[in-house]
Nucleic acid binder design. Structure first.
Length: 272
DNA sequence: CTGTTCTCCTGTGGGC
DNA sequence: TGCCCACAGGAGAACA
């Protein structure tokens, strides 16, 4: 469940847990991207969830004594499970809230590229977060900023916008989508993108992400007891995954190329 | 510093 | 039906 909209929807889905205290922590498999702190149980029991924030694709669950930093990697998902829900394969962590009526934050991640980390310092100072670029939906992310960033970059524009130090939250799907909407070929060198195109690109990134959040938000009522996935595949992509299919604008076949070892899709006719 | 390649891991789908 | 291979939505680490 990787792109920013899915992370934001996950964050929203967890909000019913705010103000509940943790009564138990179960770690079935601690070997995520980084080992899960075995003392998590000791640290978290009795702690009340204060707030849920997000930075890039990291979910920040704040407690009185520190913060859980959660990343879903490529295949992670979180649901709120009821007590009687069966344990499925790759249900690695349960964080159980409430003493009487249990609400379980259940972390599932088949590929285990995600992470669940504890910090008792300001999470924004954590080494994984402190050097991240601006949030795509914030006013800090504008055409002036992006143009300045791209000026020195010789990598492809697609790789540039997927770089978390440039802007956070633009994943492989939405990078292709945003470049299609702004009519820029993904393989173009970043520094060759014009101010006008950067302007369009910033708008396209914001629109793509905003729309996906709105769309996914409508499926949030299904969050309880449903392990992820809904909302994601339902999205209709204009170019991503549409190799050889007709471009929605000009009917020419969509091209697929590899950039930075990731699949990239574009229209050879509409994107220059 | 920049850019490139490698890496973690399981699941899935296509070809035979 | 089974087997093998390519590939999958992330992104830090290691290296040139």
């Amino acid at each position: 469940m990787p792109e920013l909209p899915e992370v934001e929807i996950t964050r929203l889905g967890l909000e019913p847990l705010i103000n509940y205290k943790i009564s138990e922590v179960v770690i079935r498999n601690s070997s995520l991207r980084w080992p899960v702190n075995k003392s998590l149980q000791k640290i978290l029991i009795g702690m009340k969830l204060i707030s849920l924030k997000r930075r890039g694709k990291y979910i920040l669950a704040e407690f009185p004594n520190g913060t859980l930093i959660i990343h879903l990697g490529m295949s992670g998902n979180i649901c709120i499970a009821s007590k009687d829900r069966e344990i499925k394969k790759h249900d690695h962590i349960d964080i159980i809230f409430g003493n009487v009526e249990h609400k379980i934050l259940r972390y599932n991640d088949p590929r285990r590229f995600g992470c669940v980390l504890w910090t008792d310092e300001n999470p924004l100072d954590h080494k994984l977060l402190k050097n991240l670029g601006p949030e795509p939906l914030s006013s800090d992310f504008d055409a002036d900023y992006l143009f300045q960033k791209l000026r020195k970059k010789t990598v492809s524009i697609k790789n540039a916008i997927m770089n978390g130090h440039v802007v956070v939250g633009v994943g492989n799907i939405y990078a292709s989508e945003a470049l299609f909407h702004s009519k820029i070929r993904p393989q173009r060198e970043a520094y060759k993108v014009t101010t006008n195109e950067v302007n369009n690109l910033v708008t396209a990134i914001k629109d793509t992400i905003e729309k996906a959040i709105l769309k996914g938000g409508s499926s949030i009522k299904n969050f309880f007891d449903i392990n992820g996935k809904n909302g994601y595949f339902q999205n209709e992509h204009q170019v991503y995954g549409r190799k050889d299919k007709p471009c929605i604008l000009c009917k020419n076949p969509i091209q697929q190329i590899t950039l930075g070892q990731r699949s990239s899709f574009y229209c050879n006719c509409c994107q220059k």
